[in-house]
Design a binder for these strands. Structure first.
Lengths: 193, 193
DNA sequence: GAAGATTCTTAATTTATCTTAAGATTTTTT
DNA sequence: AAAAAATCTTAAGATAAATTAAGAATCTTC
């Protein structure tokens, strides 16, 4: 099990000492996930925080009509979890699906709570991580209530340079909140000028 | 200065001991804010986290066309700040305006950082606070990309029972991302069935 | 209590986006 | 390499939402 990518990630926020690294490593599980495999499905409890070492995931909801709506993507170096289900222990309404063959490191709830309590550095690191994620999500909300579909698409390309040529336009459309057909139209209009 | 509302708020997450309360109190400032007064304007640095003891605020952005878009409301018992500007020390693009005469408790960045470092309980409390805010914001994003304007309006009424009969429909329209005229049409249709 | 400002409603017109369906292209699986 | 599945494009018609404008209702201020 190679936890170096996660240690590198943490070191952007706060370096860990030997004991913290050791306690962390004992509580991590490495998994290899195939394309189209789920690590969370509607009705499940979300029991882990997942760090993506390699690969790509999407978290989405299926509405009453059966349409999928992408709430979040995660690529190497990112986290993915249904935090609400994780903490409240209520069944998730979300799916988390691998979009590529992936390698992840997972930490279970009781283990994370242990780390929080034993080493306050983890409270610190995760506070900052969630703050950053929150700020990014606020920008997305502002976009959603103020920008046109075309602006949201162009912004997606700018904000997700690792992703836009790696996933289908269907997935992008679902993320920015338009139909694939309309995204196709937007792309044609952008190209033709 | 009455900090009891803030202590009550914190006690939902973790009770503070005497030293923590004392250190906290020394670093809080109470302010009385008049209706329509700003505690943050575009171009300012956001230098404080603001806890609302009494009253009501909105945080919004003004787009290129001069239209306002409400990103967040905060009433008594809630927090409001431009966290991105606060941490990165970059000028804010947002305004925070009192919608009623209000009383707030503010804590400056250096004081909050001191508390984080001196008492890890504050890292813990704010981690949980931001996690909860993050989960709520995710729900809003899902709504924005999947629900109709009418559904978003009905959901607003459900989620903000303290607010909907206290602020104008213009503000609600700006929050859910429609024009006031269209919200008026939605309301008429809801009433007429 | 009157004047001014803000907010709400209504309706007509225009624009943005969705729906459906079909065919073309690309990717994945066999 | 062929077959199957997924993706992308196009277009027409339907629906959702924005815009504009005018008047009514409500709230604020003097």
């Amino acid at each position: 099990m190679n936890i170096q990518p996660l240690l590198d990630h943490f070191s952007n926020y706060r370096a860990l000492n030997r004991k913290e690294v050791n306690d962390l490593e004992k509580r991590l599980a490495e998994r290899r996930i195939k394309r189209r495999q789920f690590i969370l499905q509607q009705g499940d409890l979300c029991k882990h925080y997942t760090f993506v070492v390699d690969g790509c995931f999407r978290m989405y909801k299926v509405d009453d009509k059966g349409n999928e709506h992408n709430l979040q993507f995660a690529v190497e170096g990112g986290w993915i979890a249904d935090i609400g289900s994780f903490h409240s222990e209520i069944p998730s309404e979300l799916y988390i699906e691998a979009m590529e063959q992936s390698v992840i490191l997972q930490i279970a709830k009781e283990d994370l709570l242990y780390l929080y309590t034993e080493h306050s550095v983890f409270d610190r690191i995760f506070r900052v991580l969630v703050e950053n994620a929150f700020v990014n999500l606020q920008k997305r909300v502002l976009q959603n209530i103020s920008a046109t579909a075309e602006e949201r698409y162009l912004d997606f390309l700018k904000n997700y340079p690792k992703l836009f040529n790696r996933i289908s336009n269907v997935q992008i459309a679902s993320f920015i909140g338009v139909t694939p057909e309309f995204l196709s139209k937007i792309r044609r209009e952008i190209t033709s000028r």
